[in-house]
């Protein structure tokens, strides 16, 4: 990763914190542990806390727990070599204790890649279920513990009906529990209930976030998700290919907003509550393709109906809980998110 790419992310973090950093002041001088700390989410949280320390002198210590610390050291040295970041190589499922100074935990350990869920469904479920169990047990032994943020998933609502514009936290849908394709969502549901049990029985202060979809730096453009492939194909100078009629609706949040929202929910969220995290403004895949194409000269061709009969789907959150209770807002619009993602991938 070159200096330009690192600088772009720091710009994003500082811009994301501008005018609202003090809302995260409970983190000052404290220790935050992130499980799954070297993935997309963990890396963005590390960037944000590093920015808080450098720009706002938060003095927050960060411990990233992951199986992939070696890879992180080689690909993210600007984070791995910082004095305020400690890497702990461990499989979250087999973790017995957390550092005794731990005040805050963000539990992000899970693999969201649906290719992995298909090929290793048992492993995918075990990482979430056994991992959550192990972390909750470890937290129970911490002395001055303040809050546990469980990162669940917007997928726990099951398929969003096309007529439901946005899914709120109270929506009662669920994935089909008899299907292998539900392993990730179903494991996340189990983890939420396990967290509720730990909050009740062990009195662990605990809040839940349900992430939807994101687009930004540190995401692999090869993951077979629509927006990633659209950007990859445009970067390669190829046509953007859209399944079906392009009327499937998605929404995407930029990761600097995501990271800020998670930290705000961690420090300001009420124990026992759940907050959707994502962009409430949906966009059709056809318009998304047009938006991406607009950043390239010559503009790539957009091909609709690359596969006849593709089903139309929708995945858009309602985020009124986060907005009304925590005063959260998105700073990066969808067009800006696309522009910044392309810029970073070109850097």
């Amino acid at each position: 990763m070159n200096v330009r790419a690192v600088d772009l992310i720091r710009e994003d973090c500082l811009s994301g914190l501008e005018g609202r950093s003090e809302q995260l002041s409970p983190l000052r001088g404290d220790t935050v542990v992130i499980t799954g700390g070297t993935g997309f989410t963990g890396t963005w949280l590390a960037e944000m806390i590093a920015a808080l320390n450098d720009q706002y002198s938060f003095g927050t210590k960060l411990i990233l727990i992951s199986r992939s610390t070696d890879h992180f050291k080689s690909t993210r040295p600007h984070l791995a070599n910082r004095a305020d970041i400690t890497l702990v190589k461990s499989d979250v499922r087999y973790m017995v204790e957390l550092p005794k100074e731990t005040n805050w935990v963000i539990h992000a350990a899970a693999n969201p890649d649906n290719r992995f869920h298909s090929t290793n469904p048992i492993e995918a479920m075990a990482i979430i279920s056994d991992g959550t169990f192990a972390v909750l047990k470890a937290v129970d032994r911490c002395g001055d513990f303040k809050m546990f943020l469980n990162l669940s998933s917007g997928l726990i609502y099951g398929s969003q009906p096309l007529e439901v514009e946005r899914i709120s936290e109270h929506y009662a849908g669920a994935p089909s529990c008899g299907s292998v394709s539900s392993v990730y969502a179903e494991a996340k549901r189990f983890a939420e209930t396990l967290c509720a049990a730990a909050r009740s029985q062990a009195r662990i202060p605990l809040v839940t976030a349900r992430p939807f979809a994101f687009i930004g730096p540190y995401q692999s453009m090869d993951t077979p998700w629509a927006i990633n492939n659209f950007i990859r194909d445009a970067l390669n100078g190829s046509a953007i290919r859209v399944h079906g009629d392009g009327q499937t609706v998605r929404s995407y949040m930029y990761p600097s907003d995501m990271a800020y929202w998670y930290l705000r929910i961690l420090t300001g969220g009420s124990s026992g509550l759940t907050y959707n995290v994502g962009n409430p403004e949906g966009i059709t895949l056809q318009n998304l393709a047009l938006m991406i194409a607009g950043h390239f000269t010559p503009s790539p061709e957009i091909r609709l109906h690359t596969a006849a009969g593709a089903a139309k789907t929708r995945f858009v959150p309602e985020v009124a809980m986060a907005v009304n209770e925590l005063g959260l807002a998105q700073k990066v619009s969808m067009p800006q998110a696309i522009e910044r993602t392309i810029r970073w991938n070109k850097a």
Binding site: N114, R115, H117, S118, T119, S179, V180, S181, P224, N229, R241, H243, T306, A307, A308, G309, A310
Partner: peptide
């Protein structure tokens, strides 16, 4: 259907 779902998750468009 389960096996087909794997192919969809790998990126098959049909």
């Amino acid at each position: 259907a389960e096996q087909a779902k794997k192919m969809e998750s790998y990126g098959a468009e049909g």
